[in-house]
Computed example of a mutant assay.
Amino acid sequence: MKANSPADTLVELEDAVATCPPDRCTRILSGILRLLTSRGDRPQELLAHVTDGVLLRLMERVEAGALIQLSTALADLEIAPPKTVRRLASHPDPTVACPVLLRSRSLSTADLQSIAGSSGERQQDAIAARASIDPPVIEALIKGGARSACLVLIGNTEARFSDSAYVALAERCQADDEITKALALRPDTPDAVMRELLSASRAPRSDTVPKATTSRQSTSTAPVPPKLPCAAAYASARPEIVALNRIGKLNDSTVNRFAIRGETANLFTALSVLSGTPIEIVEHVMTDDDCEGLVMACRASRLNWQTTLAILSNRRGTRLSFAERERAQHMFETLLLSTSQWTVRWGEIAANVKESSRGSRGAKMGVSR
C-alpha cells in the first residue's frame, strides 16, 4: 500500500474539516491551539506553516467566540501561522482583529499599512498602540486614519515619528485643537514642531471666527484667566481628593487628567492637598500672569514636568509661547523641592496672598461702614 505524502495528508485533513460539524471544528481548533502554544522541542516555524491551511478552513466553520480565542492566543506567539494571522487581522469584527493587530509580530509592515487604510476606528487604534510600529505605518495612520488613532499614536511613547509624520500631524493640528494639545505635551516633540504649533495657534482661524467679530477679537490678545471655583465646588471636591491622596492615587496621572479636562475645583484642591498650602495660595498662583509661582506650587506638590506643563498649558485661553515654555522648564528643573515648599507655604508667595487678603477685607469693611 502506497503511503500518502505529508502534502496529501494535509489536503485530506482540510477537506475533512470542510465537512465536519461546527462543534467538532471548535474542538479541532482548540487542539491545534494547544499544540501551537505548548512548550516543547517541536520546530515552531514548521508547525505554524503546517497548521496554517487547516486553521484557515476551521475559521470558516466556527463561531465568533472561537475566533476571538484564536486571535488572542496567536497574538502572543513569536512564530504564528502567517496566513491565519493576516485573515484574523482583516476580520471586520474588531474583537477578533484587535488582539493580533495590537500584539502579533507575524504581521508585516505592508500588512499593517493595508489594514490601516481599510479598517475601522478600533482596528486603527489597536495598530497605533503597538509597541513596535514602523514609520510607514505611522504615516498611513496619520494621513488616512481616524483622529482617535492620531491621539493614540501621540500617546504611544514607543512610536517614533519621521519628519513626514510630523508634517502630516501639523496639517491635522490646523483643524483639531485636541491633537495640537496632545502633540505639544508629548515629551519628544522637536522644538521646531513646537514653534510651528505655537505660531499656528496664535493665528486666527477664518473658519471658526465670525466675520462680524474678527477685527474686534484680533486686537484683544490678552489671556483669559481661569474662572475660580465657588466654595460649594471646593466642598464637593475635597473629600474625594483627600481620599485619593490617602490611598496613593493622587498622582501625576490623576492631576494631569484634571488639568486636561478642565476640572478646576479638583485641580486646585489637588494642588492644595499635595503642596500643603491653603487654597487661596493655589488660586493666586493659578491666576497670576507670571508662571513662576505655579511652577513652584507644582514642584512643591512633587509633580513631574509633563504634569506641570499640562497645568500651565490649560490654565488660560492661550498657549505658552516657546520662550515661556523653556523658561518654565528651566525653573522647574533647577528649583529645589525644599525651596519650592517653603516659598509657597511660608515665603514671599504666601506673604503676598495674606497681604492681599487683609487688604481685601479692609476694603470690604470700609465699604460696609
Rank of each mutant, 00 (worst) to 15 (best):
I279N: 07
S272T: 04
E263S: 14
F258H: 05
R257Q: 10
E283C: 12
V285I: 08
I279R: 05
F268T: 06
I281D: 07
V285N: 09
R261T: 01
H284C: 12
A270L: 11
G276Y: 11
G248R: 08
K249T: 03
R257Y: 03
F268V: 03
T254C: 07
G248A: 13
H284G: 10
M286E: 03
S275Y: 00
F258Y: 07
S253L: 08
V273N: 12
S272M: 13
S275M: 14
M286G: 14
E280H: 06
D252S: 14
G276I: 03
N251P: 14
L250T: 00
R257L: 11
E283I: 06
V282E: 11
R261I: 00
L274F: 03
T254Y: 00
V285H: 07
V273F: 00
L267R: 01
S253K: 10
S272Y: 00
L271W: 01
G276M: 14
L271F: 01
S275H: 05
G276Q: 11
T264P: 07
N256T: 07
F258I: 11
R261V: 01
V282I: 08
N251I: 13
T254R: 08
M286N: 06
T264K: 12
I281W: 02
S275E: 10
S253Y: 00
T269V: 11
F258A: 10
L271H: 03
T254V: 06
T277R: 05
D252T: 13
G248H: 13
L250F: 00
L274D: 09
G248F: 04
L271R: 02
G262K: 04
P278I: 08
N256F: 01
S275A: 15
D252K: 14
T287Y: 01
V255T: 05
E283S: 09
V282M: 04
G276E: 07
K249L: 15
S253R: 13
R257D: 13
